[in-house]
Amino acid sequence: MQQNSIMLFFMLLVGIGTIFFVSIFMSSLNADKDSTGVKNLLKKRFWFTLILIVVLGIFAAATLPKSPYFTFANETPSTVIHVGTMQFSFFLSTKPIDPKSPSGETIEIPHDQLVEFRVTSFDVNHGFAVYDPSMRLITQVQAMPGYVNNLRYKFTEPGKYHIFCLEFCGTGHPVMQATFKVI
């Protein structure tokens, strides 16, 4: 699960950062009166900057191709689900949804097949966030009035999936949810 890796990675960085700042502070407390501190500052700054640029460059090169805009971009989805949103409901349908009288249907999506959600809003901005049966957020996209966002995903596990709104849309925001099945 990506979130666990993110948390672990972050905690590792926080640990290193904390040790770093505490040791810098302690070095000052324990320093002699005539100690002059770091020598060859410019050289050290140069190497620090270079390492930082290389590390960030590697990160950018490794992560940008994994951006959701590029995943499954060259495949043809086997299922298309139209998603209409409005305060405070989701409408999911295999057919286009009429904004004047929106209605949805019970959705079942076959696993291991590419599905495309065509997500829009009929009033304000909403979020369309998919949670797996263990209630872990696995993918999301925004629902914006006047635009259709296409979100592609391949579900591997059958089960009941939840949809929550992840863009604040008014007082009913936390109760705006729906479910679908992956079979």
Binding site: S28, K33, S35, G37, F48, T49, L56, A60, L64
Partner: peptide
């Protein structure tokens, strides 16, 4: 994404580095 990454470079390499260097091993 690139601007968010790049924004951290001057901050870390100049500001944070300078403050750390001003404190490290000095009374």
């Amino acid at each position: 994404q690139l601007a968010s990454y790049l924004a951290s470079i001057p901050s870390a390499a100049v500001t944070v580095f300078s403050i750390v260097a001003a404190v490290y091993g000095v009374k």
